[in-house]
Amino acid sequence: MFQVGDRVVYPMHGAGVIEAIEEREVLGERHRYYILRLPVGDMRLMIPTASAPQSGLRPVIPADQVPAVLEALCEPVPPLDSNWNHRYREHADKLRSGDILEVAVVVRNLSARQKARGLSGGERRLLDQARQILVSELALAGGMGRDEADALVERHLGAAEPAGGA
């Protein structure tokens, strides 16, 4: 169970801080909810406490894991499926996993693909979403602002080896 003030990540939305734990009535039933404030987009989410583990809600990574995430951005890009629909599904699955290293792989792969050949509209949106999730967690984990975390991601993407078949 999380507490007010805990820094957490909600897959597909990003990292934020639990502002409150409240009991609310929804459809005639009372449930307890985590009220999560996401700094990116100034969004508030209500997540039922009972289903938080199944939803993938997890603590933000510790600061000592940030370098491993940044290294993942620099790794060589493997050959990617030439079918955009297959690529999209594969990357969407990685994003849904909630694993920060998988999110970094999505950002690395799609960024390389964008530079090399461009992306479909769906892949562009997926890249934007993955990058938002990645930057939000790195900012909270590393104790930095969003702009600083975004610049850090950009620098590491710039150091990545060229795409091999991206």
Score class of each variant (00 low, 15 high):
28 G>P: 02
29 E>K: 15
30 R>S: 11
30 R>V: 09
32 R>E: 05
32 R>M: 02
33 Y>S: 04
34 Y>N: 02
35 I>T: 11
38 L>E: 07
40 V>H: 07
40 V>M: 08
42 D>N: 14
42 D>R: 14
42 D>T: 03
43 M>I: 15
50 A>G: 07
51 S>D: 00
52 A>H: 04
52 A>V: 01
55 S>V: 07
57 L>H: 00
57 L>N: 08
57 L>E: 08
58 R>F: 05
58 R>Q: 12
58 R>E: 01
60 V>R: 10
61 I>T: 04
61 I>G: 06
62 P>Y: 13
63 A>Q: 12
63 A>P: 02
64 D>C: 03
65 Q>T: 04
67 P>N: 12
79 P>L: 05
80 L>A: 12
82 S>G: 06
82 S>M: 05
83 N>G: 02
86 H>R: 15
86 H>Y: 11
87 R>Q: 14
88 Y>Q: 06
91 H>M: 15
91 H>I: 04
91 H>Y: 14
92 A>F: 06
93 D>R: 15
95 L>H: 12
96 R>P: 14
98 G>E: 01
98 G>C: 01
99 D>P: 02
99 D>H: 10
99 D>A: 13
101 L>I: 02
102 E>M: 04
103 V>D: 03
106 V>R: 03
107 V>M: 04
109 N>G: 00
110 L>Y: 02
110 L>C: 05
111 S>R: 10
112 A>T: 04
114 Q>T: 01
117 R>V: 13
118 G>W: 11
119 L>Q: 10
119 L>N: 09
120 S>W: 08
122 G>S: 07
122 G>E: 07
123 E>I: 11
124 R>V: 08
125 R>Q: 14
126 L>C: 05
127 L>A: 14
128 D>P: 04
128 D>W: 03
133 I>G: 03
133 I>H: 12
133 I>Q: 10
137 E>M: 07
137 E>K: 03
138 L>A: 09
142 G>H: 08
142 G>V: 08
145 G>Q: 01
147 D>H: 03
